[in-house]
Design a binder for these strands. Structure first.
Length: 465
RNA sequence: GGCCCGUUCGUCUAUCGGUUAGGACGUCAGGUUUUCAACCUGAAAAGAGGGGUUCGACUCCCCUACGGGCUGCCA
């Protein structure tokens, strides 16, 4: 069994699209789960639109998602000489020909074809021209695609897809300026890189037929294709900016942990029985092309949140803190001081099972991160009725004597509450407000343990005074 | 326009000719009420429509509708 080689080949024209991230994840899982290699190729042959900033953003995104690639990223543009060489080789083999038509001529051809209701696929008059008649003018190299018969794409996801060859025109492989087109470049690169499995968006499904013809023209082995359906927005339309977040980095900035993102993205359009929550190891173990669905999937933030929350809860505290700091940086939020970090790391144990995102975790950590003195917000103040205020006053000296074991704390507070003929639930709310300054926070007892005796008493005093 | 792909609860999906069509998220209703969160229990919720094939179709075939993609010297 030869080694599995997959690749992710984004074009650097913007941020890393969430759909692209999933495609990368699928390729990564497939290779990593089978001891294969996962390569990265930047498809930057479009010099107009490609930027190094976009390349950086893509690498950053992949790194954050935890998708490591083997070797250096390959620049497609850097391989243009090789592409040109292959184009000329096809020429020599008779699998391609020089076409001297200008773009205006082609456009005119399409217009009249359209007006006459004929196929607008361009048919070059140069296809079978005698080389002796070639003018000394700029030309493109076109694939001499078969006009009869059909091309069958054996797709691991879509099954056998048959396309009649008369639906495919002679695509341009080498532009008149000598640069390769994408269609040529992908095939040459995938072949040269030894890619065995091409897992990509199904927007390339039709292109695959043309690419097959290039493989044939060169006598190369065709890789296994797996065209996965695109991700759609919640309304079922193609995912675009109007749906909100489409760039992977936006998800990082919203506070989703990378592990949750991986889990969610893997599960979107792929399934392994009823498995919903799983680890990377399980995903690598289970991932296969057969489990990929054929219908486009819609983004569901609720499910993403749920999975994210589970992953945050499952992450060890010491790994969580760096991730939270990375989140704060990505979101452009204030970084943590050393004392805030110390406080937060002590509080993580009781914070992490209640946060679905890092953003939510930070919000719930208000009691430890907030400025002192903490002022109860409007809702909290309302909760502090006369009775609670009295109880809090009475509680302060009690807590002075209490040990800071959680169960002792509970018992202490409970006894005071009971003395007032009131359930602990009734006092816990106001108490929590007093300690945290707002209504979102972990258990009041956890808070006391985290912020310590001095701080707790000081805050109670603040409120009851 | 032509060609290609798709269509199971609101969402992600299981099913691979015979199931009370299963799970998860979300939603709703209860429970614990020692708070928030969590947790527990329960409920509502699906095979786009129409034809076939078959003893029997969500599963196979055809048509329609809808959605998406491709149709560039973009990738």
């Amino acid at each position: 069994m030869p080694e599995i080689v997959t690749r992710f080949a984004p074009s650097p024209t913007g941020y890393l699209h969430i759909g692209g991230a999933r495609t990368a994840l699928f390729n990564w899982l497939y290779a990593r789960g089978r001891g294969g290699r996962f390569l990265l190729r930047i498809e930057d042959t479009d010099r107009e639109r490609s930027t190094s900033e976009a390349t950086d953003a893509i690498l950053r995104g992949l790194t954050w998602l935890g998708l490591d690639w083997d070797g250096e990223p390959i620049s497609q543009f850097g391989r243009r000489d090789r592409h040109a060489k292959v184009a000329h080789e096809m020429l020599a083999r008779g699998g391609a020909y020089k076409c001297f038509c200008t773009q205006d001529e082609i456009e005119a051809y399409r217009e009249t074809a359209h007006a006459e209701g004929r196929s607008t696929l361009f048919q070059s008059p140069w296809r079978d021209a005698d080389p002796a008649s070639h003018p000394d003018a700029p030309y493109v190299i076109r694939l001499k695609a078969p006009r009869d018969g059909e091309t069958v794409i054996k797709d691991a996801v879509q099954g056998d897809v048959t396309i009649r060859n008369d639906q495919l025109d002679d695509m341009v492989c080498l532009r008149s300026d000598g640069t390769p087109t994408y269609m040529l470049a992908v095939v040459v690169d995938d072949h040269d890189m030894g890619v065995t499995h091409v897992i990509r968006g199904d927007d390339h499904l039709n292109n695959a037929a043309r690419q097959c013809q290039v493989y044939r023209a060169m006598g190369w082995d065709v890789p296994v294709f797996a065209h996965v359906p695109l991700i759609h927005g919640p309304d079922g339309k193609k995912l675009s900016k109007r749906h909100g977040a489409v760039g992977l980095e936006e998800y990082q900035a919203m506070g989703y942990p990378a592990a949750g993102m991986r889990n969610y993205l893997a599960r979107l359009g792929w399934s392994h029985g009823d498995a919903e929550y799983f680890t990377d190891a399980q995903a690598k173990d289970w991932f296969d092309l057969k489990g990929i669905g054929r219908a486009p999937a819609r983004l569901d933030f609720k499910k993403l949140e749920n999975l994210s929350g589970q992953h945050i809860a499952a992450t060890p505290d010491d790994e969580l803190l760096p991730e939270i700091e990375a989140y704060l940086a990505a979101a452009g939020r204030p970084i943590l001081s050393q004392s805030q970090k110390n406080g937060l790391s002590r509080a993580l144990y009781c914070l992490k099972d209640r946060a679905k995102t890092f953003s939510e975790l930070i919000e719930k950590a208000h009691f430890i991160l907030g400025e002192r003195p903490i002022v109860p917000d409007e809702n909290a103040s309302r909760a502090l009725d006369a009775v609670s205020r009295g109880i809090l006053t009475e509680l302060t000296p009690q807590l002075q004597n209490a040990s800071w074991e959680r169960d002792v704390l509970e018992a202490t507070v409970a006894s005071v509450a009971e003395a007032h003929g009131i359930g602990l639930g009734k006092i816990a709310g106001p108490l929590r407000s007093a300690l945290a300054g707002r209504t979102v926070s972990p258990s009041v007892f956890d808070m006391m343990l985290v912020i310590g005796r001095e701080e707790t008493l000081a805050r109670l005093k603040d409120v009851t005074d």
